[in-house]
Amino acid sequence: MKVCDMMQQLDMKLFSGASGIEKEITGGYSSDLLSDVMGNAEEGQVWITLQTHKNIMAVASLKEVSAIVLVKNLQPEDDVREISNEEGIPILGTAMDAFTVAGKIYAMLK
């Protein structure tokens, strides 16, 4: 499944990083602890979080995740969108909480 497929099927909002929406999603990781994501997320996974500050892009870029999904209608700060555009790692938004959206993505990837 590509990032754009997930976006469409789950009616997600695209905040930034549009050049990366064709990337393949290999799995997912849900966590708000940046060190946990650094230690355990894998390349190509979609990262589900409620963190919206600039450091999420450093983590996303170093780990080469396929996309970041912000839950509960949270929005990325402006400088975060800028880096997302530069890196081509999409930041998406959903009204769902982490549990619900993780469940849906999990089911779609099965």
């Binding site: 940046l34 060190s35 946990d36 650094m38 450091n55």
Partner: peptide, 14 residues
């Protein structure tokens, strides 16, 4: 901010 969970040095060691 999602830091300070006491995982940093453990991650470095790993």
């Amino acid at each position: 901010m999602g830091f300070g969970a006491g995982m940093g040095l453990a991650n470095i060691k790993k």
